[in-house]
Design a protein around this nucleic acid. Structure first.
Length: 478
RNA sequence: GGCGGUAUAGCCAAGUGGUAAGGCAGAGGACUGCAAAUCCUUUACCCCCAGUUCGAAUCUGGGUGCCGCCUCCA
């Protein structure tokens, strides 16, 4: 099937739809970020990685993307944790925002264009709530402000539940403060010992959902193209967000045109979550597995499918990354030693690359099918490897085109990474090269004991030697 | 109970009506001093039962298994 333009599965319509941005050539993209009360876990890492790749793909396709991802730095969990740690909520937030950035950077997740924090947008939040009240969709109750879901006929349209079913499932105590058990807090009255801000309804703090409405509107406008997050955010978070945002503008326009939700990351075939206690922090995962393998793993299944986090899965991913990296390093080595006149059919090669590139684009444009796209990447690798195998000398154009192709795909997927052997200016490289020289001499002298010793010594340091007809090349273990 | 997802080789996984991408692992071969990498060859009754169709992994109906949401949660 040929898809010329991007199609995305929209959870609002539950259909794959052609992507048409609000403003030609631009994408307004809001992604739900972490609540910064702890390290994030590998389940959280999935949307961060996956939607980062979507962002990169959109940019690759020529869109000017404004990518906003919030930090939730005030809510019940923040308050509890700060109490436990005997620090302020602000200190807790500061710490885990820094930790988030550390882990996200390690995972190759690009920083958002804007990373707004809830506590830095209290005026915007209050303003949004005021507009919702003014439009008749929220009410004040003893210092709290609640969204009045009965006043909002569309409520339930994202999660496709009718109100009766939702209410049947709602275990929330109706309480005297709420008119309807499904009504949710926009503003919570101050409780002793909790951070609070002045508001028209007295001191208090924002509810969970309202920050996204307020900040999204501030940085992206009232109507945005893409809003993403995990499936569990569909209800109630995104349902509530949509209701709030649309009730605030009350202009009949949708808050979000395309709702995207990633499937869960499972561990032992069960949902990974902090409440179940079966989670692995991204920090721990990074210490255990190469970040490239973690990315590869996340992208090896379609983003909407559940994915099962297992040691075998990660080992397989790491092996896949190695194959990609080997291709790159073989290419770099051959470029230095085997460039020259050749009967290689460069035109045919260009055509084949072009055809694969088309397939890659089709896969990415077909609801962002990274699993299929990675399959194509491996086809590219096979094409390069075969060419390398079948020709002693290859034209410079071959190397340029091959490297460009790999680099382009790596800029989008981020699963290959840099080639350490290419960084020749440091002392380590010089030392390795010297040992390789010594080993080459030993091999010439048929002193295989010494040559194997050198190879083993380096292997123990994570340096892999490979002998080729053009000499010995080295690479770092993943 | 309501809503939704999913079932493809030993493992992971794509596939959106024309008789199954890709990766990992395994086997055999080439190459190598030995390795490693790479290349070549090799591995699928697409959960079950009906149905629609000239033709279905793909559509319909019915089963069965697994998962998720409906409550803080990516």
């Amino acid at each position: 099937m040929k898809i010329l333009t991007l199609a995305l599965y929209n959870d609002l319509t539950r259909k794959k739809e052609k992507f048409i941005p609000i403003e030609e050539g631009k994408v307004r993209f809001y992604s739900c970020g972490p609540t910064v009360y702890d390290y994030f876990h590998v389940g959280n890492a999935r949307p961060f990685i996956v939607f980062d790749v979507l962002r990169r793909w959109l940019e690759h396709e020529g869109y000017k993307v404004t990518f906003v991802q919030n930090f939730t730095d005030i809510d019940d969990k923040m308050i509890h944790r700060a109490h436990q740690e005997h620090i302020t909520v602000a200190e807790l937030a500061e710490k885990f925002i820094a930790e988030y950035n550390k882990d996200a950077d390690a995972l190759g997740i690009r920083r958002p264009d804007v990373s707004p924090r809830a506590t830095e947008h209290i005026p915007e939040i209050i303003n949004t709530i005021e507009r919702i009240i003014a439009n008749g969709h929220a009410y004040v109750s003893e210092g709290d402000v609640y969204f009045d879901i009965q006043s909002w006929p569309k409520y339930g349209s994202l999660c496709k539940q009718n109100l009766e079913d939702l209410e049947a499932g709602a275990r929330v105590e109706p309480g005297e403060k709420k008119k309807d058990p499904l009504d949710f807090a926009l503003w919570k009255a101050e409780k002793p010992g909790e951070p609070s801000w002045e508001s028209p309804w007295g001191k208090g703090r924002p509810g969970w959902h309202i920050e996204c409405s307020a900040m999204s509107s501030k940085y992206l406008g009232d109507n945005i193209d893409i809003h993403s997050g995990g499936v569990d955010l569909m209800f109630p978070h995104h349902e509530n967000e949509a209701a709030q945002s649309e009730a605030a503008t009350n202009n009949g326009k949708p808050f979000v045109n395309y709702w995207l939700h990633n499937g869960f990351l499972l561990i032992d075939s069960e949902k990974m979550s902090k409440s179940l206690g079966n989670f692995l922090t991204a920090r721990a995962a990074i210490e255990k597995y190469p970040p490239l393998a973690l990315r590869f793993f996340m992208l090896s299944a379609h983003y909407r499918s559940p994915i099962n986090f297992t040691p075998e899965g990660l080992e397989q991913a790491a092996a896949g990354v190695s194959r990609l990296r080997n291709c790159k390093s073989d290419l770099d080595f051959a470029a230095k030693t085997r460039t020259g006149d050749s009967d290689f059919d460069i035109n045919k090669f260009h055509d084949e690359l072009k055809e694969l590139d088309k397939k890659f684009s089709d896969a990415m444009n077909d609801d962002f099918n990274t699993a299929a796209a990675m399959g194509i990447l491996f086809d590219v690798v096979s094409l390069i490897n075969t060419s390398l195998k079948n020709h002693d000398k290859l034209p410079e154009e071959f190397f340029t085109a091959s490297k460009n192709a790999l680099n382009t795909y790596d800029e989008i997927l981020g699963v290959i990474g840099p080639d350490e052997a290419e960084c020749e200016n440091d002392n380590e490289s010089a030392e390795i090269e010297a040992l390789i020289q010594e080993r080459t001499q030993a091999r010439k002298a048929k002193n295989f004991a010494r040559s194997d010793e050198i190879r083993d010594t380096l292997k123990a340091r994570g340096i892999i030697l490979e002998d080729t007809p053009q000499g010995t090349k080295w690479k770092k273990e993943l």
